[in-house]
Design a binder for these strands. Structure first.
Length: 224
DNA sequence: CCCTGATTCGC
DNA sequence: GCGAATCAGG
């Protein structure tokens, strides 16, 4: 498999969206997760909350220990700089599981977006004690609505048409011919439109009104 | 052992 | 440029 523009675009979006390399590789098909990571790095994407990252080069001495057991005697690595453009803090996301055994991250709003925790039934924002002030309470849906962004989307929002103005909610699966994004105008301050904000930031419904399935952008059974 | 991303290096 | 092999941490 070669890296076509579309595949690269998908890779980018999913990578930026917080999907793991494995998920991306799986979605793209025909490539290993290593390929995805390698490509991502070659594209300039990098780092992002990587689980493996406890070692930070302290300002001190450290004789670069050569690799003990390696087929090839690798010269000491210069400096494994890693923490440069890491998001301040990932907003807690409602996690649900659809396929594997580990958590399935939702597309992550890029840096600069408000850290919304969740949306209450009445449309108020739940936030940490410290974060006192919402950018703007969007009056999200009181109850979840079936994913039906718009009766007719004349032109499907392609991967490349994404901007911070349109809803990035993925419709279908990447790689499918009709894979596209919601494309509705976003809820200001959010990566999604109002409807999909209600899905992404799973509203906490009053007891009893709990029946809709847990929809997820990526990996979910199918949302459409 | 499972997972994760990072890096290296032969191709 | 690509990605398997490897490393390293959770």
């Amino acid at each position: 498999m070669s890296w076509t523009d579309e595949r690269i675009a998908t890779l980018k979006k999913m990578w930026e969206g917080g999907a793991t390399a494995s998920q991306i590789a799986d979605e793209l098909g025909g490539v290993s997760r290593n390929a995805v990571i390698g490509k991502a790095h070659r594209l300039g994407l990098k780092s992002r909350p990587s689980p493996v990252k406890a070692n930070e080069p302290k300002k001190a001495d450290k004789a670069p220990a050569a690799r003990p057991a390696a087929k090839k005697p690798a010269p000491p690595r210069p400096a494994p700089k890693a923490a440069d453009s890491a998001p301040a803090a990932a907003p807690p996301r409602p996690a649900s599981q659809g396929s594997g055994g580990q958590s399935q991250p939702l597309p992550n709003p890029g840096p600069g977006l408000p850290k919304i925790v969740s949306v209450g039934p009445g449309g108020f924002l739940r936030q940490g004690p410290g974060d006192q002030q919402a950018p703007i309470p969007p009056a999200p849906p009181r109850r979840l609505v079936p994913a039906k962004p718009s009766p007719e989307i004349a032109d499907k929002t392609s991967l490349l048409d994404l901007s911070d103005k349109v809803c990035r909610w993925p419709m279908g699966h990447p790689g499918e011919p009709d894979f596209h994004f919601c494309g509705e105008p976003v809820n200001p301050g959010f990566p999604y439109c109002v409807e999909h904000c209600g899905r992404a930031y799973q509203a906490q419904l009053p007891r009893g009104a709990r029946r809709p399935p847990p929809p997820l952008p990526f990996g979910g059974p199918r949302v459409r």
